[in-house]
């Protein structure tokens, strides 16, 4: 169609941006400005660059991203809510020669699935977890998540999250970093070009430590949910910078390849 003609390269032209083949060529069901699309693309790029697409098994979780298997062309299994790290443990123990990863949101991982992720991390399961933190339950319509910021209004804390009533937002990258079996734990953000580039490096590292058999790889990606934040995508990215990053500092919280030794 029209787009195809425009994509034809002249002799002196080249693509400045490669789209990974493992990323399925179809429109996603995600809302405008939702960062799942970026996170999916980063995972796809990393799997291709590592050359492990054909040996990868994805464990999908419950939430908006349950349909990740519609967008990544890898073998996949669907886990019950919060249980993806346990399912991934089973897959990996069954096939220790494969690359196994889960992709989970903050309701799934940091609330109902807290026991599963912490123990998989503590056992040092050779799996990778991509954790998308957008401070809200997206698929069910914007309820309060364990990561919801103080004062943030959601459909189940309409007056804003209150420390005395609902507790403080939970910081997963730091908690995971404190567990014995973890080889890598980092937090990155998908709000800017610079942060997306850093996020990709973190995703790569979280997969590298699995491939090298060093331990559990964990990467938290701060993401926007414009729909449930009741704002447009541009304002949502501003919110990540001004409200989320100050509470959820970006950085590497544990990296055994940087002199901490193998766990």
């Amino acid at each position: 169609m029209q787009a195809d003609e425009r994509l034809a390269l002249a002799d002196d032209e080249q693509m400045a941006f490669e789209v990974p083949d493992v990323l399925v060529d179809r429109a996603t069901h995600y809302c405008p400005g939702c960062h799942h699309g970026i996170a999916h693309r980063l995972v796809a790029e990393v799997l291709e660059e590592m050359g492990v697409v054909d040996d990868t098994i994805c464990v999908a979780s419950i939430g908006c991203s349950v349909f990740i298997y519609n967008y990544l062309a890898v073998d996949s299994v669907e886990a019950p809510h919060g249980r993806a790290p346990a399912v991934a443990t089973g897959v990996k123990r069954g096939r220790t020669d494969k690359i196994v990863f889960t992709y989970q949101g903050d309701g799934d991982l940091a609330s109902i699935g807290l026991a599963e992720v912490m123990h998989a991390a503590n056992r040092g399961e050779r799996i990778t977890i991509v954790f998308v933190n957008n401070t809200v339950y997206g698929m069910t319509g914007g309820q309060m998540a364990p990561t919801t910021l103080i004062g943030q209004k959601t459909t189940t804390c309409p007056g804003g999250r209150c420390r005395d009533r609902e507790g403080m937002p939970i910081r997963m990258a730091e908690i995971i970093a404190g567990l014995g079996g973890v080889a890598y734990s980092a937090r990155a953000s998908l709000d800017s070009v610079k942060n997306i580039r850093a996020a990709k490096k973190a995703v790569r590292k979280a997969f590298d430590v699995q491939q090298q058999g060093l331990g559990f790889g964990f990467v938290e990606l701060l993401s926007g949910c414009p729909t449930n934040w009741r704002m447009d995508a541009v304002k949502a990215n501003t919110r990540i910078r001004e409200e989320m990053i100050p509470y959820f500092p970006l950085g590497v919280y544990k990296d055994v390849t940087e002199g901490e030794g193998v766990c």
Binding site: A16, G33, C34
Partner: peptide, 19 residues
């Protein structure tokens, strides 16, 4: 520079550069 493609959540942008 491809910044637009990098931040696009929908892989809706292609960037073509002349050598």
């Amino acid at each position: 520079c491809a910044s637009c493609a990098l931040i696009c959540p929908d892989v809706a942008i292609r960037v073509i550069k002349s050598r």
